[in-house]
Amino acid sequence: MMGQMIVNGVVTAALIAPPAVAFSMLFGILRFPNFAIGGYITVGVFTGYAANVLFGLPLWAASLAAMLAGAAVVWASDRIIFRPMRTSSPVTLLVVSIALTFVLEHTVRLVFGADVRGFDLPLERPLVFGGMHITRPQLYLMGASLLVVIVTHFLLTRTRIGKAMRAMADNSQLAEVRGIRSVLVRVMVTLYCGALLGLSGVSAGLDLVIEPLLGWGLTIPIIAAAILGGIGSVYGAMLGAVLVGLAEEFATLILPSSYKIGVGFAMITILLLLRPYGLLGQPEIKK
């Protein structure tokens, strides 16, 4: 029982860690909480679905297609909407990003309808390890998540562009003064985060069911994880994902499981009450 809950919690953590990382990285560069992640995830999962089910591609190729679509849509939304509006207040951008989520999700719904779907996978029993059940798709998604964590760590600490991403998120004016072109970094971050969100869509489709509101349903736990870890902190987002995943699972001991989504909220509310700027955040200086 306990072991199964930990397994489920870890699966949830593996599902929300990559998009939480993407959300945090986007925040570092865009400087506002981009709620459109839900819309990006939905675009990703339906691209994966189309590639896998409609065109009969294997899951790995469908994942790749989802990553490309995610990268394209995040880049395009930044290019068309957020970059021209970069001098607007974070709240204005927040509203725009929520509107964008609905536009993306309903565009998908317009094309695919609201029916519940699934990937084309052979039906099989869950694997059993010492009494704990886990399905093969869940193993895939955990593998993908682990890969994302490793690749992101490598990108941010070993590559020049990754270090520039951290530098830009840390102090964008100084980065410009040192010759780093902000547009270049911005484009790279949106492409990378878009790919992560597209992949997250496929992972979500493996673990849950595929429908247009899939992304919106995940938005809350993802943002909760990112805030718990200190918004903008990539490693914090990974830690936050584990906390949210386990907390959602263990909360079912005292709450009906339908309240799961509220758990993330309760956690961030309590955290923000204790530390109004997040676990690792700093008070913002008003101009």
């Binding site: 506002f32 909480p33 974070p90 509220g262 961030i268 923000l272 109004p276």
Partner: peptide, 13 residues
């Protein structure tokens, strides 16, 4: 006391 974007998230919650 929250920053406005956090305030937005908590009220959404």
């Amino acid at each position: 006391r929250l920053r406005e974007d956090y305030f937005a998230i908590v009220t959404l919650g």
